[in-house]
Write a protein that binds this DNA or RNA. Structure first.
Length: 136
RNA sequence: GCGGAAGGCUGGAUGGCCGCGGCGUGUUGUGCCCAGAAUACCAAGGGUACCGCUUUGGGGACAUUUUCCUUUUGGAAAAUACCCUGUCGCGGCCUGGCGUGUAUUCCGGGGAAAACACGCCGAGGAAAGUCCGGACUCCCUGAAGCAACGGUGCCGGGUAACACCCGGGCGGGGCAACCCGACGGAAAGCGCCACAGAAAACAAACCGCCCCGGCGUGCCGGGGUCAGGGUGAAACGGUGGGGUAAGAGCCCACCGCGCGACUGGCAACAGGAGCGGCACGGCAAGCCCCACCGGGAGCAAUGCCAAAUAGGACCCCCGCGCGGGCUGGUCCCUUCGGGGAUACCGCCGCUAGGCCUGCUUCAGCCGAGAGGGGUCGGGUCGGCAGCUAGAGGGGCCGGGGCAACCCGGUCUUGAGAGGAAUGGUCAUCCAUCGGCCUUCGGGCCGGGGACAGAAUCCGGCUUACAGGCCUUCCGCGCAU
RNA sequence: GCGGGUAUGGUGAAAAGGUAUCACGCGAGCUUCCCAAGCUUAAGUUACGGGUUCGAUUCCCGUUACCCGCU
């Protein structure tokens, strides 16, 4: 679902400082990946739930990220909207704050993910990532 | 103007920044493919002419050194080196595997994915529910019929088909415009109709009413009767008159009901001379009968390519159990005729034993595996196809038809993802809601954008939906 | 996506077209000095909305929620 986001080097995002090493952010595709991430550490915020897992070496390269919404979030339109907002947040935040060799899963929340102001949503992800990373 | 009925359209707009999916073109051009060249490599096993190293036996001649005897020649012993001839092993080498082989590099050609650039396209009227009907694919099947099961159910037409649509009929609702209807058959058969009521389906009679008989004179028995009573969703048709012991379609009139010649209509159905003399309650969204339709499963169908690991079949190499033999090889003995051995090599042959179920018999299978190499087929992850041009949609024109719809012409349009694109964010405008101010022109602030997201495709149905716009019609009020 | 099923007191289950039943639980009361046990009693939109029928938990249609299978 998440096509390889454009390598954040140069052209895009002039506001954000491009990371020194351009790490490829790809999508999580398999259910087993999601389940493994769910067993690792997690951090909830107002806007979303974030799960993170440091992969075993040799499993895959780069940062991988997946998005999920349960039926609690609403009908298909509401779920897709929540996922799109989280995808956009991840596109802006992860190349900066994410770490190479990790899997992340972002889980949408009813009401909050769709209604929360966009900058707050970005802050939520940054906060959650820092909490997950510092726990190591 | 108010209230209503029917049909249709629409489903926020513009811009900035950042981004997504598909297709096409171009650039880069690696993985990969094709053709060629060069170099290197390929296990176990087998062979051993030759070469190198090494273990060890026999022989040889001379040389050197040391020791001893003699001390002139010389002799003896030991060591070293050399030569010849065997021998244990290792390596080289040959063979084997070995081929359309593998790997690397280079030259030429083709060229995914990816990146970049440019261009084009990118959700709906319901994309939804998955309720019908099809297309398409696979499975079953010789064909047809019957049965079973499921569905449809007024008639005619439309359609690829339908439970859909159109027109008509009948019934019901509304003053009307209009709307609604699973609307075949209950004299083919079975079943059910609680409670109440005398009685619930075809015959019967509780209270009554009337007549006769009896006596104990207000009760009993027999007969007639269904007008009255009450029950219920439903009760031997209703009203009036005649009639009678009391009554009753018993008779008459009108209404209702049934049958119905004939007439109209393709038909549903309508009208209806005449006849009957009241019989035939309801339920088929109970079983059923009649007519018609239907094989099953579904794109997660299906087809193709195809890692790692495990397992299967076959081939080659190697190896293993038993027995015997051979003009073989090797070793031993030999009176040189031959005889014996055979762990090992080559060739030939075979079963002991095990498995199933408690026993027997028969049959079958395994039986020689623990290795190395190769081929083939199945097949998972994964990938590709199916996958979007079709009973297509839309506009305009012409023709047929009351209409649904059909025929012809012309122009235009065309999402194809796969943890799943079609967006995120900001600003302005637009529609709208609330509050405040108002000089009633408006202004300010705040909220806020219906239902809802393609997943193989198409025709319907059903359900959800903020608002806005258009057309036609009906009723009432007012004015003319 | 495609296909199938279920819904009845708080929970788990029954019910043939005719008064919604059983067990456990919960509330109240009686009994007891108190508790337990026992006895009495209350609580239901039969998921929702229509239809057929005199009458629907049951039959038919639609809606909602939940569950299951196919990869």
């Amino acid at each position: 679902m998440t096509p390889p986001e454009a390598p954040e080097d140069g052209t895009a995002t002039e506001g954000n400082a491009p990371p020194a090493v351009s790490v490829c952010v790809t999508g999580l595709k398999h259910r087993s990946d999601f389940l493994r991430a769910a067993k690792a550490r997690r951090q909830g915020t107002k806007g979303m739930m974030v799960q993170g897992r440091k992969r075993a070496p040799g499993e895959a390269d780069g940062i991988r990220v997946g998005f999920t919404c349960s039926k609690k979030v609403g009908n298909a339109v509401a779920r897709n909207r929540a996922k799109r907002r989280m995808r956009e947040v991840a596109r802006l935040v992860l190349p900066d704050a994410g770490r190479d060799g990790w899997d992340y899963v972002l889980i949408g929340r009813a009401e909050a993910t769709a209604a929360r102001p966009f900058d707050k949503l970005q802050d939520d992800l940054r906060f959650a990532l820092s909490k997950i990373h510092e726990a190591t």
